[in-house]
């Protein structure tokens, strides 16, 4: 009986994840005229700069998210009752608004004559050029995906036994040691899943780069979108791109999981 309870989900994942995935793989190895080909994949190296840029921007955004989220998640995990609920609510608040609307709003905020620059003008600063830069793309990623870093961190940290920290203190560890040797190692599963949940959507986004990057900061997501519903229309090349992106993500995830599976002693910095 218990086994059967997962059946709806298994059917769901089979129909809407595995079958489409199979189609992507099939298309990636199919020529426009039909028949097997490696052409789609051997064309990929010419997109190397786009891959490099996407991965770089996603890494920076992920790192920033981690740095920003860690203290916040810790603070929420250590607070109690109403305060904790309020803080969690605040973290989730931006997620109630549609992601596209938020990104579009950032476009208006960051413009040269946008709200931020108008405000800076009032106090005699700027204008600071922000829109259509890589910085703006990273900002968009961090803004949209920060909750996905905070929440897994929080859910791990909230389970850290307070007495472990007290014991470390009693044995003479200072604040930095407690964070470095107790909290970070014990938060590792949260860190790993947070990194995954921020990195994956960041590396494959296309709307953030179009609206905030002025699309002269082309990312892989843009490239794939162009192949499927954009002007390039070539689902075979698009599938090959998507396949390579998936493989790259898997490799990066596998490397991440190495850190996770090592024992706590080994993961210490």
């Amino acid at each position: 009986m218990r086994k059967r309870m997962a059946t709806p989900y298994l059917i769901w994942i089979l129909l809407f994840t595995l079958v489409p995935l199979g189609m992507v793989v099939y298309y990636a190895f199919t020529a426009k005229e039909g028949g097997f080909t490696l052409q789609n994949l051997t064309n990929i190296p010419k997109y190397a700069p786009v891959f490099a840029r996407s991965i770089w921007l996603a890494l920076v955004a992920t790192a920033l998210c981690l740095v920003l989220a860690f203290p916040v998640a810790y603070r929420i995990a250590r607070s109690t009752g109403n305060r904790q609920r309020t803080l969690l609510l605040l973290v989730m608040l931006p997620m109630w608004m549609n992601f596209l609307l938020c990104t579009r709003a950032w476009m208006t905020l960051l413009e040269d004559t946008g709200l931020i620059n108008r405000f800076l003008g009032l106090i005699g600063l700027g204008p600071v050029h922000m829109i259509n830069t890589q910085g703006a793309v990273i900002l968009g990623m961090v803004y949209n995906y920060l909750p996905f870093m905070i929440l897994p961190l929080y859910s791990v940290m909230v389970k850290i036994d307070r007495s472990v920290i007290e014991a470390a203190r009693d044995l003479g560890a200072d604040g930095i040691r407690v964070i470095g040797r107790i909290i970070i190692p014990l938060s590792m599963p949260g860190i790993i899943s947070g990194i995954t949940m921020v990195f994956v959507p960041s590396v494959s986004t296309f709307i953030i780069s179009r609206w905030l990057g002025g699309s002269s900061n082309l990312l892989i997501g843009d490239l794939i979108e162009q192949q499927f519903i954009g002007s390039a229309y070539d689902p075979y090349a698009g599938s090959a791109l998507a396949l390579v992106l998936m493989v790259l993500m898997l490799i990066i995830m596998a490397i991440m999981n190495l850190f996770d599976s090592e024992d706590i002693e080994g993961a210490m910095i």
Binding site: E111, D112, T113, G114, I131, N132, W211, G214, S215, S216
Partner: peptide, 18 residues
């Protein structure tokens, strides 16, 4: 050096003097 490559968004940006 183009400010950006866009499609429909051009309408908004021109309207707002961007």
């Amino acid at each position: 050096k183009w400010q950006a490559y866009l499609m429909d968004e051009i309408l908004d940006k021109m309207e707002n003097g961007e």
